[in-house]
Design a protein around this nucleic acid. Structure first.
Length: 298
DNA sequence: AGCCAGGAATCAC
DNA sequence: GTGATTCATGGC
């Protein structure tokens, strides 16, 4: 995408397939704050970035051309042609056509593998607002101070090393509950090299997933999320309660086992499965599709 | 107040 | 192997 440098900001005048609200609120990441309408503060890459959008004009505030080219362009996945992806998905069926049209500004962020691993371990059986809170508390307790903006202190997400002093009771004090030993097991296996997060991108997908699932508290869904959001493995299809509901609602018309949904989608969507999942998830959650009172209607 | 949350481990058969 | 129960915590 074409950009200009303007008074210390990076400005993209004609962003395509980009909606900062869709990107951040679609459930793939947790470390962001809404400042105003289409105005967000993002904590990533050991940095704080403020993003504003007005129609097709996107402003990345107080950043350099070098950071844009080497960090944010990759992080926001700006080199990928999402029009082509949406076109292919939209042709597959009418429901996907609705999802990609309604949530047309989604892009899959290229996030840190370790951060997604711990974040999605924490995410299990929790509402997104609470997940965000826990991750924030964890960062404040163990991360590195970045800066203070508008009177708020911001911290990086702690590395495995930075978490090495944490004991189970320390994590429980942060209210992560039964996930405390899971986080510790993830830290141990990563620090000892028993699980190599850097290898996830290159290995056969089944091997990579099996590796992740040796960590306590990492099952099929969390492993898929780490592979998709933290290792750019777009052929996976994480099935959570929302994806299960929307798939039942649109494709199966009855209660369906997670495994069946997962295998069906991976086969049907192929190397676009991860993208399909994200459009469907955000679409389903936003419109509460398949939830109780709406279930199995229309 | 009770139900649910971007699930997974554990136990019962 | 499948199905039910348990796990901690907060929001609604």
């Amino acid at each position: 995408m074409e950009y200009i440098v303007d008074r210390g900001n990076i400005v993209i005048h004609s962003a395509s397939d980009f909606d900062i609200e869709h990107i951040l609120e679609c459930g793939q990441c947790f470390r962001f704050y809404k400042i105003g309408e289409k105005n967000y503060r993002v904590i990533a890459q050991s940095r704080i970035l403020e993003v504003t959008q007005m129609h097709k004009k996107v402003i990345l505030h107080h950043t350099t051309e070098e950071d844009f080219l080497h960090i944010w362009r990759t992080y926001f996945d700006l080199k990928r042609d999402y029009s082509a992806i949406k076109q292919k998905l939209g042709k597959m069926n009418q429901h996907l056509q609705c999802a990609v049209t309604e949530k047309s500004g989604i892009r899959l962020l290229q996030q840190d593998t370790w951060e997604t691993l711990i974040s999605f371990i924490i995410s299990q059986n929790k509402h997104i607002t609470h997940i965000k809170q826990l991750i924030e508390d964890l960062s404040k307790a163990y991360g590195t101070y970045i800066a203070t903006v508008d009177g708020v202190n911001y911290y990086t997400f702690p590395t495995a090393m930075q978490l090495s002093s944490a004991k189970e009771k320390d994590l429980r004090a942060l209210k992560v509950g039964f996930r405390a030993p899971y986080i510790i097991d993830a830290r141990e296996k990563v620090l000892k090299g028993e699980v190599d997060l850097n290898a996830l991108g290159d290995r056969p997908i089944d091997d990579a997933k099996r590796d992740l699932m040796t960590i306590k508290g990492v099952g099929p869904k969390v492993a898929d999320c780490v592979l998709l959001f933290g290792a750019m493995r777009y052929e996976v299809f994480p099935v959570d309660v929302w994806v299960k509901r929307v798939m039942e609602h649109f494709y199966f018309n009855e209660e369906t086992k997670i495994n069946l949904i997962h295998d069906y989608a991976m086969k049907a969507y192929g190397d676009l499965a991860g993208f399909a999942q994200q459009y469907l998830f955000y679409y389903a959650r936003d419109f509460q599709i398949g939830k109780r009172k709406n279930s199995m209607e229309t």
